[in-house]
Measured scan of single mutants.
Amino acid sequence: MGFKLLSKLLVYLTASIMAIASPLAFSVDSSGEYPTVSEIPVGEVRLYQIADGVWSHIATQSFDGAVYPSNGLIVRDGDELLLIDTAWGAKNTAALLAEIEKQIGLPVTRAVSTHFHDDRVGGVDVLRAAGVATYASPSTRRLAEVEGNEIPTHSLEGLSSSGDAVRFGPVELFYPGAAHSTDNLIVYVPSASVLYGGCAIYELSRTSAGNVADADLAEWPTSIERIQQHYPEAQFVIPGHGLPGGLDLLKHTTNVVKAHTNRSVVE
């Protein structure tokens, strides 16, 4: 069995187990497998329904001669939608809004960016022009300005110390501490036991640490421990890039980060 097929099978099995364990909360999309990078042309966006009122959005972007996937989250909030992270750029984010209108038909009224990198804030200006209120932590807003990236308009308070959590509509926002970046936030959907790890969490097929220019490698494993301790009931975990899975993604990420750190020390 090929690795790609095995990865998709694991996603399907995880979703099936969740649907059985929580039949009222989960209505997993039966329309197909989780979209992969090879299936999404740059400039297009796919939506994948995880649970009743919960979707991931998947886009792709060219970077350094390669094409990478990027995940975000959409959560229903009454007759409105909360968006977590842009679709990595203005063109993708405009396509995301169009796809949401086509498939869901509810307005996106608020959006949260989970850290300051372009795959999370690139497209904020498109959201703002569409009347979406954009939010991020003060740290993310400051770092985005320093980096020359787009800056969300509103500040999220109460997320300055490791372990801080605040309720934001249908989700809980959690600051686990520094990891992929010093400002990275985690998003949890309690009604569906869905954990969105953003770039602080890796997919299972990833074996290298990737972009760690703004990471705190020493603190990252401790931050992941905080996530595990705060959300032990999480059933569906979405990484910032690639295929979702279960809580095993947290341990896998820790292993990859520690291996990278150990290699760096040896070198």
Rank of each mutant, 00 (worst) to 15 (best):
G2A: 05
K4D: 05
L5K: 05
L5Y: 08
S7K: 15
K8H: 12
L9C: 05
L9G: 08
L10I: 06
T14N: 08
S16E: 09
S16V: 14
A19C: 06
P23S: 07
P23E: 05
A25N: 05
S27H: 07
E33L: 11
E33M: 07
E33G: 09
Y34I: 11
T36S: 05
V37Y: 12
V37E: 06
S38K: 08
E39V: 12
E39Y: 14
P41D: 12
V45Y: 02
R46I: 07
R46T: 07
R46V: 09
L47M: 08
Y48L: 05
A51I: 13
D52K: 13
D52T: 11
G53H: 06
G53S: 08
S56L: 07
H57N: 04
I58G: 03
I58F: 05
A59E: 08
Q61V: 07
S62R: 07
F63C: 06
F63W: 05
D64K: 06
D64N: 09
A66I: 07
V67Y: 07
V67W: 06
Y68S: 06
P69A: 08
S70D: 02
N71K: 02
G72T: 00
V75Q: 02
R76C: 03
D77T: 07
G78R: 07
G78L: 09
L82T: 13
L83M: 10
D85H: 02
K91P: 15
A95P: 02
A95V: 11
E99Q: 09
I100Y: 02
G105K: 15
L106V: 14
P107K: 15
T109V: 13
T109L: 09
R110Q: 10
A111N: 15
D119K: 01
R120T: 03
V124L: 11
D125K: 09
V126M: 10
V126G: 10
V126I: 06
V126H: 04
R128T: 08
A129S: 12
A130Y: 09
A130G: 09
A130N: 07
V132K: 02
V132A: 12
P138N: 05
P138Q: 12
P138C: 11
S139P: 07
T140L: 02
T140S: 09
T140V: 02
R141L: 07
E145P: 05
E145G: 11
E147M: 13
G148W: 13
P152A: 14
H154C: 05
S155T: 11
E157I: 15
L159K: 02
L159G: 02
S160Y: 14
S161T: 10
R167I: 11
F168M: 12
V171S: 05
V171C: 02
E172I: 15
L173I: 12
P176N: 01
G177A: 02
A179P: 03
T182R: 05
D183T: 00
N184S: 03
I186N: 03
I186F: 07
Y188V: 13
V189R: 00
V189D: 04
S193Y: 11
S193Q: 10
Y196L: 14
A200R: 03
E203W: 01
S205A: 12
S205P: 06
A209P: 15
G210R: 13
V212H: 10
A213Q: 13
D214I: 11
D214G: 12
L217M: 13
E219S: 12
E219W: 13
P221K: 05
T222N: 13
T222I: 10
S223M: 03
I224L: 13
I224T: 06
E225Y: 04
R226N: 15
I227A: 09
I227W: 02
Q228I: 12
H230N: 14
Y231D: 03
P232C: 11
P232Q: 11
Q235L: 10
Q235T: 08
F236T: 14
I238L: 12
I238P: 02
I238A: 02
I238G: 01
G242M: 02
L243K: 05
L243V: 12
P244V: 13
P244C: 03
G245I: 01
G246L: 07
L247M: 14
D248R: 09
H252N: 15
H252L: 03
T254M: 07
N255M: 07
N255D: 04
N255Q: 10
A259L: 07
T261L: 08
R263K: 05
S264F: 06
